[in-house]
Design a protein around this nucleic acid. Structure first.
Lengths: 253, 253
DNA sequence: AGAGCTTGGTGTATTTTGAACACAATAGTA
DNA sequence: TACTATTGTGTTCAAAATACACCAAGCTCT
């Protein structure tokens, strides 16, 4: 939460740089240790969490704005990023407005206006992310999708909507490339699908189907060192992967 | 196109009623005589076409705004309406800005600001629509998707994007209810699917599959009067239809 | 009236796809 | 060297999609 002077300063910057009424919120999905995770910002001295978000500069394409915002929070550039919905309830930021209404009169407070937020979701490789809090957050960290903290405003709803979109996406597009490390085993990839869909898949059928898409390359060398049988390592065939993104896959899960 | 006084008046209304920077454009799909159609507005004395669109009132949910806009153009209320994407290129309305830049200085002209437009698409029953032009349009009429006039700005792109979304939708949701009249024959419904997907489907397999979804009721009486064999009439079982909308269908085309 | 055309409804093989399961291979461990 | 956990591959069976064949009904034309 801002103090009064911070609020005044920010409002001035905002008014000159950003489009009124429009914000962006990003649901950043990562995958680690068999769990689907979401990036969340914890506000200083509060039990309040928010999605990484920001505003659109007056002369900036919205995709570029989302990319800029995410780069600041994750260190990543050129990540998989897709808008999925606008959240436009007039009352959606009401708690936020009330918070500041005694500090600055509405006509001076840029935040007191109504905001529509454009929801983006991002798929990123967990280990490459460097979560970086912004000025009024005490932390930027990963949260298990199954164990989310208290996200404020409509941010919990935004996360749910993003997850629904991701599950649909799975039915007609390949998605692993953005969430998996360069090399991975088939069971690891399967775990990703199972986590997103929240159901068990048959090991053997998954393998056959996945290979059937023709978007995987198998390495010569299996992974060594672990207990039990050494699994093969796979990586995505980027050319075929891109093609599958455009053309779409068949059928669903 | 506005003249100067109209522009001044409109700007005044707009400033007091609407959210800055945000517009809504609607792709209204209808189906008639085996053709998929889109509603377009033709500007007076110009070879320019636009999608029906409008702005969001300061305290109005965006879905309600889209509904209001469509009601004015079609006479229909409570129609199937869904947002599918935000178009946010900073340059998207450039031609529109240039048009008015000599008439009113930018700081007085509400239209000279940057607008993001939220794309909605609607599915409506062709025969129930009463296309109504707005003040600066000379007509509001249906255009064949295969033979579109010269839509300005990025409206052609918006139409294409809506169509892509509709095609995807077809894979996991029933859609006929909103586009067909109350009663229809199976071949008529098939024609709708063929038109949207732009490919031929097998008559018999289509019938079996459609019936398999369990969302159709067959009437006792076949349609009389036409040449050749009298086909059965079907209507949608609204309860099961709504359920299929929520649960989703299996597989794709 | 009835042959012939067109359109609509139903049935039935064939192929493809998906789900379930058995078994072999490999690497570590006791 | 058995034993276990894990991965890779094959095989079977059922369901679904596909492709066709056939029948029924209504109109037209002679």
């Amino acid at each position: 939460m801002f103090n009064k002077q911070e609020l005044i300063d920010f409002c001035e910057t905002a008014r000159s740089s950003y489009l009124d009424h429009i914000s962006i919120d990003c649901v950043v999905f990562g995958f680690h240790e068999g769990q689907l995770k979401v990036l969340g910002l914890k506000i200083k001295n509060e039990a309040s969490w928010y999605l990484p978000g920001g505003f659109v500069m007056k002369d900036e394409p919205i995709e570029m704005a989302a990319n800029r915002i995410l780069k600041e929070r994750t260190g990543l550039d050129e990540i998989f990023l897709q808008q999925f919905r606008v959240f436009g309830d007039p009352e959606r930021a009401r708690p936020h407005h009330d918070l500041y209404k005694d500090m600055l009169p509405p006509e001076e407070n840029w935040f007191s206006m109504r905001f529509l937020t454009i929801g983006f979701y991002a798929l990123v490789d967990f280990v490459h992310v460097n979560p970086t809090p912004d000025g009024h957050s005490e932390s930027c960290t990963w949260y298990d999708l199954t164990d989310l903290p208290d996200f404020k405003l409509d941010h919990a709803q935004i996360i749910k909507s993003a997850l629904d979109t991701l599950r649909l996406q799975l039915n007609y597009q390949p998605i692993g490339y953005n969430l998996m490390p360069k090399e991975f085993t088939m069971p690891e990839l399967q775990k990703l699908y199972e986590t997103i869909l929240d159901k068990k898949l048959d090991r053997r059928n998954f393998q056959r189907r996945m290979l059937g898409f023709g978007i995987l390359n198998r390495s010569e060398q299996p992974r060594k060192g672990g207990a039990h049988k050494a699994p093969y390592l796979y990586s995505f065939d980027l050319e075929h992967y891109q093609n599958a993104l455009k053309e779409g896959l068949k059928g669903g899960w």
